[in-house]
Structure formats: C-alpha cells, structure tokens
C-alpha cells in the first residue's frame, strides 16, 4: 500500500493523466484513422463485398461530382446566415443585459433556456410554428398582411427557416460570452469617452467594439464551426429536403452511410468535412494568439 502511494506521488503527472489520454486516443484517434482507411476503399455494405483499396478514387469521385459541391454550398450558406444572425442578435442582447436592472438574473436565465434544450426538440417545436396551412407563424403573417410562406417545405425558404430556429436556440451562447467580455472591459476608456462628450453610439463603435474584438472573433469562429457541423436540428426538421435543398455535408455523409450503406464514399466525405473543420479550428487558435499578442491579452 505504502509502495503504491509513493509510486503515485512520484509519477502523479502520468498516473493522473494517462487513463484519460488513453481513453481519448482509443475513442478519437483510432476511429479517425479508421475513417481515413475506409475513405481509401471501395466499400458498399449492400453489395456484401469487403473493402477494396482503390487508390483515392473515392476522393476523385466525390470532389468531381456536383452533389458534393452543392452540399458544401448549402452548408456554407446555412452556416454564414445563422452565424451572422446569432452574432448580431447576441451582441445587441448582451448590450441591453449589460445594464443594471432589477430582475436581471431572471432575464438571464430565461435567455439561456433555448440553448440548454435538445436541438431535436427545438427542431420539432419549430415545425409546429412552421406548419404551412394552420401554423402559428403563417397565422401571424396573414394577420399583419404579409404573404403566407411555405417555410421548410419550399426550396427557397428552407435554409433561412432552419437558420432561424438555429439562431433562436444558439444566440444565448453569444449573449453569455459577450456579457462576460463586456464585464471584463476596463472602465477608464469608456468613462473617458463619456467625459469627452461622445454619444453612447459613438462610444460603442469607437471604444467598446474595438476592445471586444478578441472576444467577438473567438465566439464568432466557434459558432461558425459549431453550425458548420450541426446535424440534429436539420435532421429533425427536414432530413435534408425538400429535394436535397437543406442537405448539408453532415447530412449528406450520414445519408450516404446509413441509407445507401456506401461506407467508403461516406468516409471520404467525412474526411473532407474533418479537414475543413480542422483548418477552421487551427484558424481559431492562430487568430486568438495573434489578437492576444496585438492587444496584450
């Protein structure tokens, strides 16, 4: 017993970290490597044949097919729309909640609620509001004299409609991070601007916003990556329809694997998705470091 104790005491660094490291390696590094191997093989479960190495033909096929690029374009469109909406709304709400008022904590809790809910539940909830013939939103639209919308059942409106649900759910993340950023700002520059007679709007654009750059960049890129790889909400609302108009890369890869059982091709898409997200993540870390240097933390 004593011996074990001294051993742990001496090697605590590895005794404490190895179990977690080994678990994560086994559960993340190994599967990613497997996906890479799958992606280099012709492999269709329905054909009943095994894997057959095909020298990266999957990559050629995927990258030269129009379906992949269409899906990538949908993903980028959806991600940009949702991220921009979340950022603008998030900053605006954070500015309001940054004031001191009675019941602030209650309001913060309420704002947080959508973020904590299961995305699949949020998706189904919004399907109720989007119901084309007798849904709540079309009722409100017609009451105020707007034309009815088909929302998720038309090709033109499906992406903005899902992005709206995504925004409703995920804006709280931006609000919370911006609030923390705002409260950690130095007060002097803002006070100085006030003394110099700047209007609140001038102060915001010329003092607060530049001081918030680092926070905004981090959260913006994090949101972009999160939306880029999101699955649940779109799956709940449209499963990629109508006519593949909302089939993002994630859904396309899922469908290829679990509806058509083309594991090789699906793995190829997943590897491409993985590389895109990896590059974006490296971007996040690089930009974060640069900004820290630039603004001195």
């Amino acid at each position: 017993m004593k011996k074990i104790d001294t051993f742990i005491n001496k090697h605590i660094k590895w005794v404490f970290s190895l179990p977690a490291l080994i678990f994560m390696l086994a559960m993340i590094a190994v599967p990613i490597t497997m996906t890479l191997v799958f992606s280099l093989n012709e492999w269709n479960l329905l054909m009943g044949t095994g894997m057959k190495f095909n020298w990266g033909k999957n990559y050629m096929d995927v990258l030269s097919g129009s379906e992949f690029w269409q899906s990538l374009a949908i993903t980028v469109y959806y991600t940009t729309l949702a991220t921009v909406a979340e950022m603008l709304l998030g900053i605006a709400i954070a500015l309001v909640l940054n004031q001191n008022f009675r019941g602030k904590n209650v309001v913060k809790t309420i704002v947080l609620l959508p973020y904590m809910m299961a995305p699949i539940a949020v998706g189904l909830m919004w399907m109720l509001f989007y119901e084309p013939s007798s849904g709540l939103l079309n009722y409100i639209f017609t009451s105020v004299g707007l034309p009815r919308s088909a929302f998720v059942s038309a090709k033109q409106t499906v992406i903005p409609s899902i992005a709206a649900a995504e925004t409703w759910q995920m804006t709280p993340m931006v609000v919370i991070v911006c609030l923390a950023g705002l409260s950690s700002l130095p007060l002097d520059p803002i006070e100085a601007a006030k003394v110099d007679g700047a209007t609140p709007i001038q102060t915001f654009f010329q003092v607060t916003l530049p001081l918030m750059t680092q926070t905004l960049f981090s959260i913006g890129l994090l949101r972009f990556i999160d939306v880029f790889k999101s699955f649940d909400l779109i799956y709940a609302m449209t499963k990629g329809g109508p006519a593949n108009a909302s089939r993002t890369l994630n859904l396309f890869a899922y469908e290829t694997a679990f509806s058509y059982y083309k594991f090789g091709t699906s793995s190829t898409m997943l590897m491409i998705l993985f590389v895109i997200v990896l590059l974006l993540s490296v971007g996040v870390m690089k930009i974060q470091r640069k900004l820290v240097e630039y603004y001195g933390g």
């Binding site: 599967p31 996906t35 799958f38 790889k229 590897m271």
Partner: peptide, 10 residues
C-alpha cells in the same frame, strides 16, 4: 471542435 459524425461510422 471535431465533427462527431466523423468518428460515428467507425
């Protein structure tokens, strides 16, 4: 930051 689905297939 990893996309979950890229480990789901394996």
């Amino acid at each position: 930051l990893l996309p979950n689905i890229s480990i789901l297939l394996p």
